[in-house]
Design a protein around this nucleic acid. Sequence first.
DNA 1: AAAACATACATTTTT
DNA 2: TGTATGTTTT
Length: 712
Amino acid sequence: MDDTSWAQLTSSQKKAVCHKEGPLLVIAGPGSGKTRVITHRIAALINSGIRPYNICAITFTNKAAEEMRHRAVALGASGGAHISTFHSLCVRILRAYADEAGINRNFSIYDEADQRRCIKQAVKDCELDATNFSPARMLDAISTLKNKLIDVDAFGSQADDFFSQRLAQVYARYETILAERNGLDFDDLLKRTAFLLEGRSEVRRQLGDRFKFLLIDEYQDTNHAQYRIAKALASAHGNICATGDPDQSIYRWRGADIRNILAFESDWPDATVVRLEENFRSSADILEAADRLIAFNKNRKQKRLVPTRPHAKAVLVTSFEDEADEAEAVARQIEELVDCGTSLNEVAVFYRVNAMSRVIEEALIAGNIPYQIVRGVEFYSRKEIRDLLAYLKVLVNPSDEIALLRIINTPARGIGKVTIERVRNYAVRRGITFFEALKHAGDIDVLSKAAKSKLAAFVAMLERFKTASTGDVAPLAERVFSESGLEGSLRGAGAEGLDALENVDELITAVAQYDRQAEEPSLTDFLQQISLFSDADAYDASGNRVALMTLHAAKGLEFENVFVVGLEDGLLPHERGIDDEDELEEERRLFFVGITRAKTNLQVSYSRYRTIRGQMLRSVPSQFLFELGCGFDERSEEEDTSEKSEFDHHSMTAPEFAVGELVRHKAFGLGRVEKYVNMGGSSVVVVNFSSGQRKSLMVRYAGLSKMSDLGR
DNA sequence: AAAACATACATTTTT
DNA sequence: TGTATGTTTT
């Protein structure tokens, strides 16, 4: 990987970036090498005599952290700097200061599936009806509260309407359930750390002493809790360096607050600000399109993308009949690229939602093109993986009832619902954990003799594992896998068991790798680390395969050739974000991130029909297509229409509209034209309806009537 | 108690 | 469309 971006910095920029003292903000557009700037700063600090031990760099993903470690070493900075995500850092801090934080250091980390179970229990305990208080909705609300660092007490005292009061109830119950199980969810990791740092000055001082230099990448996607953590960590010395690009903020839905980066200069008044506007990645054609697109965002500081690469190839905007056509065309073009000498790891296909990967996969399989899907969780949410991990979790944290209930009868060992319910009752009555009750199963009168002996055998097995649970993790994992009977049950399950066995093999390989690279391998540490990993971290850029991923996963990557598919109203922008101006702008930023991944070839496309949930629906091209200002690919448009002959897009006429004109739609009512793109029969009009909705409509199908015609 | 079956259900993005 | 849950059957 070349280092043009660094070499091109002016000497004053270099000096600012490498300067030791004080706050530093690097605002940098896509392709400007901002992550590399951080790496250079790390190297420069170390070369100037700062101990790596005193440096803490925070990245957005584990993969980015790993990459940064490699690059720093390549620049001559020996290892030793702490480079990780916020979440990993918090795990380390919470383990080191467990007593001060008031938690047990063997805590389990609860992922979304675990959270769902807890919240369901909480809703049930509060005797609320699950339709109005759906677990998903509750979880979402609670997560938002936690990200804003509003704890149960604070929220409870300000809850004044019916919904908030019920929510406060569920929130409280949920927190109690987590506490009983010694579990922390993702949001807790941040929340607890923030409160620890803010509440304990000696902890803050010690960590400020340890991490004398704080560097944070992708600052535009930090949430409020992360913001407070960063602030606390840097409070002692002010050596905080943040890099980011407000135009690439795409995680609002997860609590990311763009104000964090916008307020950096007022938070740190003596901050040095470096702006990097030159783009070393993409051709001028791509950047011009990206520039035109992002200019449609109103809540944005004016910023330009300055190309350093010449014009190369026009951005291609193409339409297809349906999603299968679209996928096939992508596959065909990839074949052509390969024929011209492109290697497959220089090609990526981006889409808005994971569900869209299937049709692309099918086309690639048909074309015999190797590919790799970069996806969020997947691997760790497989049943067999969760089962094995649940055994390990219980060894570390016997209070983890979720894990315990998962394995108590997996594989089947004749411990059924009734038995479990009886044990649970006993536990509740005695005020002890489920596991403690299990240990005393012999004393539970209502249990049958058979049940007692089965439970005793189960507990004895766990105790056996427990004695072997120190040191390297891999041997333990293997032993648990075979002795628990998991292995046997998979082997007996025929063909689908085989897949599962392979997955477990893969897990054990990963465990062995952990054992090798961890300074001090421990089961606790392993489990806590693995909880924060996702499939996206396993993306292997060196494999000679096409990369398939969502636009979100594309962040931080770059490819010679990029295809973005499904540019349809309701998909991109997604329907959930279409009515809200802020969310629409985020969708636009998401598309912006996608197209700025491309170095030379960029093709965006949409299909006129798309099958969604088994139903084929006519789709409307995304407004973003027009905002690119690249025009449609006339040729493919004609090809498609000649095949279909029923409609001729170009010769068909449709009424014309003017911006600002009042119109009426039979479903959406009265509205005002915000934008009109005249393309003959396929003209598109964007209308703001008085209902507050805003729609892109194809004039031909919309049946809009002009208010100015009414009187005639 | 487990498997087979039926039915309702919700459907974005991920540390 | 698939998943995820509940119901019936064995």
